[in-house]
């Protein structure tokens, strides 16, 4: 389910990996003025949702994840709300060793690394049995205001 009024996008998806591509399309449309930002936001959402679906919820059916995007005062604000067990990836997932040679490289931690690299602010709060991941990103200079 999607609602969008130009400055706010509210999206609900069932907690399944195959549902993420639909969210990506809605985000790309919502951020149509900033295609590069849209790609970066979609990568962060995909990584965080994939972690929640596969590790937090262990693929269990019947869960819903809410994603909200809001444009305000030159910033994009993002909230992801899920009902998985309490988890803070920014506190618990270590940074990957990006300098390691091929034999020593492991894929773990890359997704959270992308979020840390691409967002200006990231944190998780626990509210009423839900994780709320809150992300902020400054909009590119000279960005057109949403209508």
């Amino acid at each position: 389910m999607t609602t969008s009024n130009g400055s706010v996008l509210e999206y609900r998806l069932s907690a399944e990996l195959t549902a993420i591509a639909g969210l990506a399309e809605a985000v790309t449309a919502f951020l149509a003025a900033w295609p590069h930002l849209a790609m970066q936001v979609n990568l962060c959402l995909d990584e965080l949702l994939t972690n929640t679906i596969t590790h937090g919820l262990k693929g269990e059916p019947g869960h819903e994840i809410r994603v909200g995007l809001a444009l305000a005062g030159g910033w994009l604000e993002i909230a992801i709300t899920d009902d998985a067990p309490a988890f803070d990836p920014f506190a618990e997932v270590p940074e990957p060793d990006l300098e390691a040679e091929l034999d020593a490289r492991t894929p773990g931690g890359l997704g959270v690394h992308f979020v840390r690299s691409l967002m200006d602010d990231y944190r998780v709060v626990r509210e009423g049995g839900h994780n709320r991941v809150l992300l902020r990103k400054q909009l590119p200079d000279g960005a057109p205001a949403p209508h």
């Binding site: 979609n42 034999d103 890359l110």
Partner: peptide, 19 residues
């Protein structure tokens, strides 16, 4: 058009296997 860390995981496995 798009790759995430899940895709990079397969690329890394392939590179290690080739080596």
């Amino acid at each position: 058009d798009y790759v995430s860390s899940a895709g990079l995981r397969i690329i890394l496995m392939a590179a290690k296997r080739a080596k």
